[in-house]
């Protein structure tokens, strides 16, 4: 007898795009997470996270977009790759953090740790401008962009920062002049192309 396939109407009542972006980036391994917590147990910055790494994975699977994107965790993650290395189900957890950060940045909302994406943006702008990182430009631009100068004055950290800066300078570790802009034209093209590769 011939087997007849019946196609049932599929009811889509949830927007799965958020999860799809993660799955697209790292494959279906994420569905095999059985919450063993090995990622969270080995995470060096778990002590300051509001959502532990295994909870981030679950929130992605449950389509809890806001919960994941508004977490402190995605910005505090130091990208040390310990979770990815140890996951028994080969889930690239550090990559999940990257994808979530990328979606968060593109969403245009404010990050829970706003200084971190400002730092990354300043970093990329420094590359775009000079082709390489000039540490002093990166530092001063970041302080300016993030309101870091007034923060360091308020907290009294400035004395320490200044002392450290002077010590580094005296030891020849602060290069004052920026690099010679080699390859900058080519990099501009990459930065333009990057705009066309948005997540959403």
């Amino acid at each position: 007898m011939e087997t007849k396939l019946i196609s049932l109407p599929v009811t889509v009542n949830r927007d799965t795009r958020f999860r799809d972006l993660v799955v697209e980036a790292l494959g279906e391994a994420i569905f095999s997470c059985y919450q063993c917590c090995k990622c969270s147990a080995g995470c060096p910055v778990a002590f300051v996270m509001d959502l532990l790494p295994h909870q981030v994975i679950r929130s992605v699977l449950l389509l809890q977009r806001e919960k994941a994107l508004s977490s402190r965790t995605i910005w505090i993650c130091a990208s040390c790759e310990t979770c990815t290395t140890r996951c028994p189900n080969e889930i690239d957890i550090a990559k999940v953090m990257d994808v979530l950060r990328q979606i968060q940045v593109e969403s245009g909302t404010e990050a829970k740790e706003p200084k971190v994406p400002i730092f990354h943006r300043t970093f990329l702008n420094t590359i775009k401008k000079f082709g390489r990182i000039h540490e002093l430009s990166l530092l001063t631009n970041f302080l300016r962009q993030s309101g870091g100068i007034s923060d360091t004055i308020k907290s009294g950290e400035w004395k320490n920062d200044l002392r450290l800066g002077i010590k580094m300078f005296l030891r020849g570790k602060l290069k004052l002049l920026p690099p010679s802009k080699k390859g900058v034209e080519e990099l501009r093209k990459l930065f333009d192309q990057a705009k066309e590769h948005k997540k959403s």
């Binding site: 980036a25 990208s79 990257d98 994808v99 950060r101 990328q102 940045v105 971190v116 994406p117 730092f119 990354h120 943006r121 970093f123 990329l124 590359i127 082709g131 390489r132 990182i133 080699k182 390859g183 900058v184 080519e186 990099l187 990459l190 930065f191 192309q193 990057a194 590769h197 997540k199």
Partner: peptide, 19 residues
Amino acid sequence: WTCCGASAAHCINEFLSVS
């Protein structure tokens, strides 16, 4: 040679993190 993008690119821009 130009900068590799280090810790910043992969956090906020997938394309640059590789290119």
